[in-house]
């Protein structure tokens, strides 16, 4: 799961070098359009629908947060 998420981030933002250690929101790397695109691709990759209430900047700040987010929304 973690690798899939990493690959999706890499594919969308090839300019981000250190995905494991970047604070995407705090460092201003991701904006709301990136988040929308990531949600759409996570939904597709894991066959889930991330709850709209969970689409908050903090849930996209780190790779760990994104892993927790997709787990919380039912990804196996």
């Amino acid at each position: 799961m973690r690798d899939t998420i990493k690959k999706i981030i890499q594919d969308n933002r090839p300019d981000i070098d250190d995905i494991e250690n970047t604070a995407f929101i705090d460092d201003g790397m991701l904006d709301s359009f990136d988040i929308v695109t990531l949600v759409s691709e996570f939904d597709k990759a894991f066959n889930i629908s991330i709850d709209g209430a969970d689409i908050t900047p903090e849930n996209f700040n780190t790779l760990d947060n994104m892993v927790n987010l997709v787990k919380k929304n039912g990804a196996k």
Binding site: S32, D51, G52, A53, I55, T56, P57
Partner: peptide
Amino acid sequence: KGDDVFNFVLN
């Protein structure tokens, strides 16, 4: 303010 509107609608 797209983020605020999105959260308002979904909440």
